[in-house]
Amino acid sequence: MHFTELAKKRCSVRSYADKPLDPQQLQAILEAGRLAPTGKNHQPQRLLVVQSPEGLAKMAKAMHNQNAYTAKAVILVCADTTDCWVRSFDAHCIHEIDASIVTTYMMLAATEQGVGSLWVERFDPEIIREEFALPDHYIPEALLCLGYANPEAVKSPERYDTERKPLEETVWFESFDA
């Protein structure tokens, strides 16, 4: 599958079949996260895979969503702030950027594997910290819900023809001057 096809096939899945994830597919998704580029190769990502009913209930609590979208697994993407590249010009630690790249790679790998995904930012970090005993230097950055999409949850790749702005509205060359 070409990259553009993969990108158009990916959609935010909010309803999953009652079927556990294949361990090999989950492993391929996690491997994609391991391969993701990070600032100066620091690899600050710390991933917690949650699949048990008890763990998924904790995720639902943190999302303020009764059923966590019926996901069969949720990957908690954290960043270790003690292992993060820091930009020398302004001392900006890029852990959030690194975690975003890792999450994106895993989301696209899930699509390639035929696994639906949903990147969730609407969660209470304090509940996550408490329920999963995060060390102080781990920042919860994202939740990646995973599972096999119910058919009605899948969106058409053609949606990008109307749901995305044309390049002319988002890309400039050399200067932002009109």
Rank of each mutant, 00 (worst) to 15 (best):
M107Y: 00
W172M: 13
I94A: 10
L26M: 11
E31D: 12
I29M: 10
E126S: 12
D136C: 07
M107K: 03
D18A: 15
M1Q: 05
M1H: 06
R122E: 06
I139G: 00
L118D: 01
P125S: 06
E112L: 05
V120I: 14
A149P: 01
I127D: 00
A91Y: 12
Y16G: 02
R46M: 10
E141V: 14
E168A: 15
I29W: 06
I139Y: 14
M106W: 12
G39F: 09
G147W: 07
D177I: 09
L108K: 07
M59T: 08
W172G: 02
A153Y: 09
F173G: 03
Q24K: 08
M59V: 15
Y148S: 08
I75V: 14
S117Q: 08
P140L: 11
K155P: 00
V77Q: 03
C78M: 15
D161I: 10
A110C: 06
M1K: 10
Y138R: 00
C93V: 10
I101K: 05
D136P: 00
L146N: 02
P20L: 09
E130D: 06
W119H: 07
P166M: 14
E112Q: 13
E174R: 09
E163V: 09
K155I: 04
T111Q: 12
V74D: 05
L21P: 01
H42N: 11
V171K: 06
G55H: 04
L6R: 04
E141I: 10
S117C: 09
F173I: 11
T81R: 15
T111M: 13
T170M: 15
A99S: 13
E126D: 11
I128K: 03
A153N: 02
K61Y: 09
R46C: 04
R159G: 02
D18G: 01
L146S: 04
K9N: 05
V102R: 05
P166D: 15
P53Y: 03
R10T: 04
Q27T: 10
E174W: 03
L118A: 07
C84P: 00
A60C: 04
E141S: 14
S156M: 06
L35Q: 15
L144Y: 11
Q51L: 01
A79P: 00
F3Q: 05
L56Q: 06
N150A: 12
A153T: 02
I97W: 14
L30M: 14
R14H: 08
F173Q: 13
Q113G: 01
H95F: 14
T38R: 04
R129D: 00
V86H: 01
W85M: 11
N67T: 10
S12L: 05
H95W: 14
H2R: 08
K9H: 05
F123G: 01
T103S: 13
G114M: 12
L26H: 03
Y148M: 06
T162V: 13
E112R: 01
F3S: 03
F89N: 12
A17P: 00
R14I: 07
G147N: 06
A142N: 06
I29F: 06
Y138Q: 03
K19W: 03
H95C: 07
T162E: 02
A99Q: 02
E130C: 07
A149Q: 07
L21H: 04
A149L: 13
V49E: 08
A133E: 11
A32I: 09
P151S: 12
D22G: 06
A36W: 05
